[in-house]
Simulated scan of single mutants.
Amino acid sequence: MSRIISLKVIGDIDWSKEVDLDFGSICVLVYYCSTINRPMSLKLMNALLTESTYRYENDIPSEAYTSDNPISHYGPENMQELIYFLTNQIIPNLSTQEIDLISQVYGGIENFINLYYDGPPFLGYFGIGNSELFEGFSGYTPNLVICATSLCAFFQRVKERNMKYEIYIE
């Protein structure tokens, strides 16, 4: 069973605005983004990292941040660029056809995992395995559009509330 990545605006009491996404689908989405626009896919990855994970992965002293601190690395000032990228590049590209990227483009789960780890080094920030990818779901383009749209809505809320957010991977 795949892990879930949960995003929650700090101080938000409306639980319906929390976003819970399939971890495998997020990994496929970030990989797909890296094939379209690598610098923006790195920014998307950074938006999905806690401050402590970002510091660890980039060899920056952790200071007061520990692995049990879910505070995001990015804040509201970074959201507009991500919203624009997802809305104007990724969602339109994914919406052109209904296919399973994992089986029909990337050559199956094992091959996708190899492509993922052979891709940009920042993809390794999210370790992924066979148990988190499901052909017909994780790479299914309508599912990825839903993930990207959910991220856009969440990033918009972060921007509007002008607050950082918490990230949980369970």
Rank of each mutant, 00 (worst) to 15 (best):
I4P: 01
I5R: 06
I5D: 03
I5E: 03
S6M: 09
I10N: 04
I10K: 15
D12K: 09
I13R: 09
I13C: 03
I13N: 10
D14T: 07
S16E: 10
S16C: 04
K17E: 14
E18C: 10
E18D: 15
D20Y: 13
D22L: 09
D22A: 06
V28S: 05
V28A: 05
V28M: 07
L29R: 01
L29K: 01
S34R: 00
T35Q: 13
I36Y: 11
N37D: 15
P39F: 06
L42N: 09
L42V: 12
L44T: 00
N46P: 00
L48P: 01
L48N: 02
L49T: 01
T53I: 14
T53Q: 14
Y54S: 02
Y56N: 13
Y56S: 14
E57N: 15
E57R: 15
N58L: 08
I60W: 11
S62V: 05
S62I: 05
A64M: 12
D68P: 07
P70K: 06
H73S: 05
H73M: 12
H73A: 08
H73G: 03
G75Q: 10
P76R: 04
P76Q: 06
N78G: 03
N78P: 02
M79G: 03
M79E: 03
Q80T: 13
L86T: 00
N88W: 10
I90K: 02
I91D: 00
L94C: 04
T96L: 14
I99S: 07
I99R: 08
D100F: 08
D100I: 08
D100N: 13
L101M: 09
I102A: 13
I102T: 08
I102Q: 06
Y106L: 05
Y106E: 09
G107C: 09
G108L: 13
G108R: 11
G108H: 14
I109A: 13
F112S: 09
N114P: 02
N114S: 14
D118R: 10
D118E: 14
G119N: 04
G119A: 11
P121S: 15
L123Y: 01
F126C: 08
G129T: 15
N130A: 13
L133M: 08
F134E: 14
E135T: 13
G136E: 05
S138K: 02
G139T: 06
P142S: 12
P142W: 09
I146P: 00
Q156M: 14
Q156P: 00
R157C: 09
R157M: 12
R157W: 12
V158N: 01
V158P: 00
K159W: 07
M163Y: 13
Y165E: 08
E166P: 02
Y168D: 10
Y168V: 13
